[in-house]
Design a binder for these strands. Sequence first.
DNA 1: ATGAAATTACCTATCAGTAGATAGGGTGTT
DNA 2: AACACCCTATCTACTGATAGGTAATTTCAT
Lengths: 180, 180
Amino acid sequence: MSKLEEIIETAESMIRERGYNGFSFREIADAVGVKSASVHYHFPTKGDLGAVVARAYTEKFLLALGDPEAVTHAPKKLIERYIEACRYAIAKQDKMCLCGMLGAEIAALPDDVARETRIFFEKNIEWLAKVYMRMTNVGAAGAQRRAYGAVATVEGAMILARTLKDPDAFDKAVKQIATS
Amino acid sequence: MSKLEEIIETAESMIRERGYNGFSFREIADAVGVKSASVHYHFPTKGDLGAVVARAYTEKFLLALGDPEAVTHAPKKLIERYIEACRYAIAKQDKMCLCGMLGAEIAALPDDVARETRIFFEKNIEWLAKVYMRMTNVGAAGAQRRAYGAVATVEGAMILARTLKDPDAFDKAVKQIATS
DNA sequence: ATGAAATTACCTATCAGTAGATAGGGTGTT
DNA sequence: AACACCCTATCTACTGATAGGTAATTTCAT
């Protein structure tokens, strides 16, 4: 793994744990084993780093989710997969979803980071809406609302679980979307 | 309104907009018309201020919600009231719920602020569970899960709406808890 | 194949600004 | 006199960012 990749990965980890304003270039540099000027070499501004991290996260996340219209997977299984990705973040990593964290502090973000955060959510909603559309008795408007509801619920559930220091809180909170 | 109250109110507003690490004593002082040392006079550390703000917010929020067991109000109406409180934050103020914001960055908070944030969520869940318990065909476990689900959904819905710059996203996201 | 130029990726040193916090002082009210 | 509430001045630590430098690697021209 190159230093560039290590910087991106370390930044992701720190943001997911403490937010965009909770880490510094020097901390990244220390963790990676370079100096902060070297982080600036790859990313001239903090916003540049933030935007790249968010974009990479979106791509990675959607890749892991797979094709929402794959006939080999029942819609319910795909919803479960979505939930499981977020549960993993909480139960195994004790970290927020990157864009959930960025979304909370959206008003304080540089424009490009905010834009990438928005794109994450748009793509998540799109993915979920496609899955819900494959279910019977769910119209376009209903699928959309469910998609919004699912994204909101898992993001909120992660906040709840972390605040209450109770991973079970995540499961309780998502129960309804998991079974509907 | 005393300066002390102004400090608390201003801090609440800034945290709800930008998070705990997105404001400083000097900014509070400027906004209130005093110097930062005066903010320190009332609150020796930032954590002291954060904890007081969070506690005051919890009390104010629960007071506004009212008695969950009041027979004058149908459970559905009370759930709507809960949702409306959060919609107002987004639609009229473009701000997060204070403890939703603090919850996102919980790992970076001083202990007392984190504790007050936890208490907010515990009390919200307790309030909602009491409301759901008054509905027919909802057992204790079901009420609990719905309460967790409702809190999670509205917190996530606020993040979504703010990130997407679309207050309607809030309504789409909470639709299922509003109608169930 | 070879040497020069260009590029990449790091470094030291530094800048300007900001943050939480503290010591000591002043003023008005009770 | 005691207290509440403010102030100036300052401290330490930290932040994002920049200028100039070096060494290794790659590319280009001959």
